[in-house]
Simulated scan of single mutants.
Amino acid sequence: MDTQTAGGPSELGTRIRHRRLALGLRPSEVAERTGLTTDRIEQIESRPFALSGGELVRLAHALGVTVPDLTGPPAPTTALRPTAPVLEPMRTDECITLIRSATVGRIAYRGVDELVVIPVNYCYRDELIIFRTAADSAVAQYDLEPIAFELDLFDEGMQDGWSVLVNGTVRPATEPEIRTAHDHVEPWAGGTRETYLAIEPRRITGRRIRNW
């Protein structure tokens, strides 16, 4: 049990947060794995808390570590925070897991006179990234044109995070693809955005930076 009662996060809460970020997981995903609420996970990571033995075991299992890994004595500062961040490539399956778990990314494509980068709401279905746009948008006029898709998560305070880049082509989605994606893509911007486009990935790469 963690007995800290005042101040910021405890050593245990910080370790849990670091491990979650290293795995590229959101608090809601850890909550789902453990059966706890998202609010509870955020409380454990950021504020004083009392943690039951059962919660500790479930957290360790969800994060792929042992209970002693989380509760053991603090490692020397030099071991916890190297002198330089470590940049690691991610496997394709890790990248796809992160793409599946998110709903907002960025697309980059050639505009009339310049490159354009905009955020989009999307879903990942049948190895395709499907998003909606206005019928008169520049990207809606493309058919099998090159496009890039990117998403990331960074913690400025800890100076760690990850990014995923998809290179491929974009085309109008087919009717079956539209039906599959219809209930899973809702643009935040609103308006009439009933043109569905599908990105066919050609290459998926990712990098993770660790600073602990």
Rank of each mutant, 00 (worst) to 15 (best):
T3H: 11
L36T: 03
P76T: 12
R20A: 08
T97N: 12
V170F: 09
L36Q: 11
T97K: 15
E45Y: 05
R132E: 01
L25I: 12
G7L: 03
T180H: 07
L36H: 08
V170R: 06
R33L: 14
P176W: 12
V117R: 09
Y109K: 07
F154M: 12
E200R: 10
F131E: 02
L153I: 11
S46Q: 11
R26G: 06
E175D: 09
R91C: 11
S28E: 10
R33C: 14
V86C: 07
T38N: 08
I99C: 00
G8K: 11
T14S: 02
A22H: 13
N121Y: 05
S10I: 01
T66Q: 05
L80H: 11
R110L: 11
P48V: 04
T14L: 02
L21Y: 13
P9T: 01
L165W: 13
G190E: 09
R106G: 01
E42F: 02
V120I: 10
E45T: 05
A22D: 15
T180R: 13
P9D: 04
E150R: 02
I209E: 07
D183L: 11
T37C: 07
T34M: 05
A79S: 14
L59V: 07
T78S: 14
R207K: 12
D136I: 13
G24N: 06
V30H: 04
A31L: 13
E175G: 10
I199G: 06
Q4N: 09
P76K: 10
V170Y: 08
E175P: 15
S10C: 03
V65E: 00
L23H: 03
T5S: 14
R202Y: 12
T71W: 06
Q159M: 14
E29W: 13
A108L: 04
Y122G: 04
L98V: 02
R179K: 15
L56S: 02
Y196V: 05
P73H: 06
P187R: 04
V104R: 15
G53Y: 02
R210E: 13
V170A: 07
P172K: 08
A50G: 15
E127D: 08
W212S: 13
R203H: 13
Y122A: 00
H61A: 15
S28D: 10
G105F: 00
L63V: 03
A60K: 03
G161I: 14
W212G: 14
N121P: 05
V170C: 01
M158P: 00
T77I: 15
G7R: 01
V57K: 07
V185A: 14
I129Y: 01
P27R: 04
A62T: 01
R203K: 13
V120D: 02
I147M: 01
P76V: 07
Q141Y: 06
S101F: 08
R202K: 13
F149C: 00
D39N: 12
D160G: 15
T5R: 05
D143H: 10
R207F: 02
G64P: 03
P82C: 11
D113K: 06
L197V: 03
R19V: 02
T5K: 05
W212K: 13
G8Y: 10
P187Y: 00
L128F: 12
A173C: 01
E32N: 09
A102M: 08
A31V: 13
